[in-house]
């Protein structure tokens, strides 16, 4: 009886670990798309409303997908605090604080970091171009992330259960 319970626990643990790794793959494209939606909103705020960046980021934080809302509210908070931070510093600080808990990878965050250097330093036309460029790069990453998700989600779930089964065979 105890052996059965132990085996079930090992199998569950293996399956859960595989499912969790698989979930990271499936979450990443959704988070990239949420980021793209928010950047599109930011582009609108800058191009059509000409809202100051602090205000624009606050608006985006209110309307964006909850998956990326924290990033924009952190960036807005730093920028509006008048603590002597440039837009790039506020933005990069928010990237460093918020995204370690996400499924986004370094290459996704590099797009955000590259965008930060241009934020607020030029006219509307130029700002819109920089955001469009970031959106294009994110779009390509989202396609790759979806492909990864399709390939790896089931693979890792299977591997998790498989590893659990192997362990049961070895232990018992």
């Amino acid at each position: 009886m105890l052996k059965t319970v132990g085996a079930a626990a090992v199998l569950f643990a293996g399956g859960a670990t595989g499912a969790e790794i698989g979930r990271l793959y499936s979450r990443r494209p959704r988070e990239i798309k949420a980021l793209m939606g928010a950047l599109l909103l930011l582009q609108t705020q800058i191009s059509y409303v000409a809202a100051p960046l602090g205000e624009a980021l606050s608006v985006v934080a209110l309307r964006a997908d909850p998956k990326v809302e924290a990033f924009f509210s952190h960036a807005a908070g730093y920028l509006n605090a008048s603590c002597g931070l440039t837009a790039a510093e506020a933005w990069d600080k928010a990237v460093a604080e918020v995204f370690p808990d996400s499924s986004l990878r370094e290459e996704d965050l590099d797009v955000l970091r590259d965008l930060s250097a241009a934020l607020g330093n030029s006219d509307r036309e130029d700002q819109a171009l920089h955001i469009s460029l970031a959106l294009e790069r994110l779009k390509a990453l989202a396609v790759a992330a979806e492909e990864d998700a399709r390939r790896f989600v089931r693979l890792y779930r299977f591997l998790g259960f498989g590893a659990g089964l192997c362990l049961i065979v070895l232990l018992f």
Binding site: L53, T86, G120, R124
Partner: peptide, 17 residues
């Protein structure tokens, strides 16, 4: 100079065209 422009304009030079 760049930092002062960025901070003083609220990182929003586009809003002051």
């Amino acid at each position: 100079v760049n930092r002062v422009v960025n901070i003083a304009s609220g990182a929003s030079l586009y809003a002051f065209e």
